[in-house]
C-alpha cells in the first residue's frame, strides 16, 4: 500500500446533530483530516441515494452523520437515511466495490469527541481500503 495515499471523503451531516457536533469539535480544536468535506443537510432524511453515488464517483468514501435512533427531529428521517445508505452499500457491492465505502453513524450534537473519532476512524478505514476503483478520473 502506498503510504502517502490520502483518501478523499464527503460527510453529509444532519444540521441537528452532526453539524453541531462539528462546531463543538471545532471549538475544542479537535483535529479532523484535511481531505474531508462536510455538507450540511436539514435532516439526514434529505440524503438522496443519488448524492451518495455522485459523491462516490469522485471520492473514496461517504459518511452520513444522523441523529441518534428514535431521536430524529422529524421522527423517521434517520431511519430513511439508514435505508438509503444500506441500498447504496448494496449497489456498490453488486458492482464489486467495497460496501464499507458508505456508512451511517448516529450521534448527538454534544458528542464532539465521538464525532472527531468517527470521522477519523472512517478516514482510516477508507485509507486501509485504498483508492475507490470505481472513481471517475477527471
Amino acid at each position: 500500500m502506498n503510504h502517502n495515499y490520502q483518501p478523499k471523503i464527503v460527510v453529509f451531516t444532519c444540521e441537528n446533530s452532526g453539524w453541531l457536533a462539528l462546531k463543538h469539535a471545532s471549538a475544542l480544536g479537535l483535529l479532523i483530516p484535511e481531505r474531508v468535506e462536510f455538507i450540511k443537510l436539514p435532516c439526514s432524511g434529505k440524503v438522496d441515494l443519488l448524492y451518495l453515488l455522485k459523491a462516490l464517483e469522485k471520492v473514496d468514501g461517504t459518511l452520513v452523520i444522523a441523529c441518534q435512533k428514535e431521536n430524529c427531529k422529524f421522527l423517521k428521517g434517520n431511519l430513511r437515511a439508514e435505508q438509503r445508505v444500506n441500498r447504496a452499500g448494496k449497489l456498490l457491492k453488486e458492482i464489486g466495490l467495497e460496501e464499507e465505502r458508505v456508512r451511517i453513524v448516529y450521534l448527538a450534537a454534544n458528542m464532539e469527541h465521538k464525532f472527531a473519532e468517527t470521522v477519523q476512524n472512517f478516514y482510516d478505514k477508507i485509507r486501509e481500503l485504498g483508492p475507490n476503483r470505481g472513481k471517475v478520473m477527471k
Binding site: 453515488l53 464517483e57 453488486e94 458492482i95 470505481g134 472513481k135 471517475v136
Partner: peptide
C-alpha cells in the same frame, strides 16, 4: 428519473473499476 440517475452512477462506477 431517480432510478435512472442511480443506474447511471452505478454503471459509470462499475465500468471505471
Amino acid at each position: 428519473e431517480t432510478e435512472t440517475g442511480i443506474l447511471h452512477s452505478q454503471l459509470t462506477m462499475a465500468r471505471n473499476k
